[in-house]
């Protein structure tokens, strides 16, 4: 079971965890990405996430499906990403997976967040006291 969402509302982490509960699962693994107060030494005031919604949702689903192919024992996958303005400590992304045993749950969760960062069409702009930068835009 795959659940994908892109939202401008705060992410309900507890609900995301509940969404991957499965009778066949002995392990639930979660990655929660939060907004840090600094980036390469500059104090971050806030972030803005912009998304190409239709492609981001399509690519997120593909990443989840690829994880299911690599780890066929995956019981459920939930990926929820925020967009819009976020402040320090806000939850930007949640990946939750359930599997029969723990080893695959760690591997699948890491695969999903690592691949998300490479292919999913979401862009992060960091705002500092004295300027702003699109993350990763330039070499």
């Amino acid at each position: 079971m795959i659940h994908i969402d892109l939202t401008d509302q705060p992410i309900d982490v507890a609900a995301a965890l509940r969404s991957v509960e499965a009778d066949g699962a002995g392990a639930i693994n979660t990655f929660i990405g939060t907004v840090r107060n600094q980036s390469t030494g500059r104090a971050v005031v806030r972030l803005e996430y912009e998304a190409y919604d239709s492609m981001a949702l399509h690519q997120l689903r593909k990443v989840a499906e690829q994880a299911q192919e690599k780890w066929p024992m995956l019981q459920a996958v939930t990926v929820i990403h925020r967009k819009g303005t976020l402040h320090i400590g806000d939850v930007a992304v949640v990946v939750a997976v359930s599997t029969p045993h723990r080893a695959e749950s760690f591997a699948a969760c890491q695969y999903i967040i690592d691949t998300l960062k490479q292919v999913v069409t979401i862009w992060k702009k960091e705002f500092y006291l004295d300027g702003d930068v699109w993350v990763a835009a330039h070499p």
């Binding site: 990403h81 069409t121 699109w134 990763a136």
Partner: peptide
């Protein structure tokens, strides 16, 4: 086609 220009992504 629905065409878009995709600069370096930075989600997560």
């Amino acid at each position: 086609d629905e065409i878009a220009l995709i600069p370096p992504v930075s989600g997560g």
